[in-house]
Amino acid sequence: MSNTLESVVHKVDVREQPQVVGAFPGQPSMWFFIIGDLLIFGAYFIAYMAYRSQEPDVFLQSQQAMNQGVGAINTIVLLTSSLFVALGTEAVRAQKIRDSLRLFGLAMVFGALFPVLKIFEWLPKIEAGHTPGENLYLMFYYVMTGLHLFHVLLGLVILGFVMRNIKTAANPDVRFVETGAIYWHMVDLLWLVLFALFYLMR
């Protein structure tokens, strides 16, 4: 009886870990970076919307040639990767080192799938002659998704460092793990907006 109670308490404990009010996930300098990055991307998003309204037909026509399905799969891939990172962070806090390594490993597998999918999305487009020079929509599309892809690749490197820290340090640096995690979630967050703007909206 007491055994099950203990496991319940433990479970609740793991789930409620991040709920300490006023706790600060990750390093403050990373939040500085994230907020600035969100503002920079935000400015680009609004510029896209403004230029789009000047020649909506061009944008709509090029957008129709996009593969909405691939966009949705990309979104789900990044969301899933983000979930594993979030669960992995909780596992590190709960000192479940083996679990956390497995979870971060899965996160990296899904994260690495994203660039592969992007290449399979870009290459046929470029082969069909839909290059950035064709029109403003495609220029925005390649520049913005390219910039985002750069963030994804950087995020994979950061996740690698996080895993190395968990694996090699006697006591994993929770702050550092959180810092890598919030960066990865930001990459996910930006894609959610990109998906709506470049694939879905009319």
């Binding site: 390093q27 300098s29 500085f32 970076f33 600035g36 290059t131 020079g133 220029m139 520049v143 910039l147």
Partner: peptide, 30 residues
């Protein structure tokens, strides 16, 4: 130098990459 300045430097040099578009676009925002 402060760490946040390092991050500011990252934005600075990443946005410089946008200049690549000047070889393609002759009008407009790029």
């Amino acid at each position: 130098l402060p760490k946040w300045l390092g991050y500011y430097t990252v934005w600075q040099f990443v946005t410089e990459l946008f200049a690549a578009t000047v070889w393609i676009a002759k009008t407009g925002p790029f």
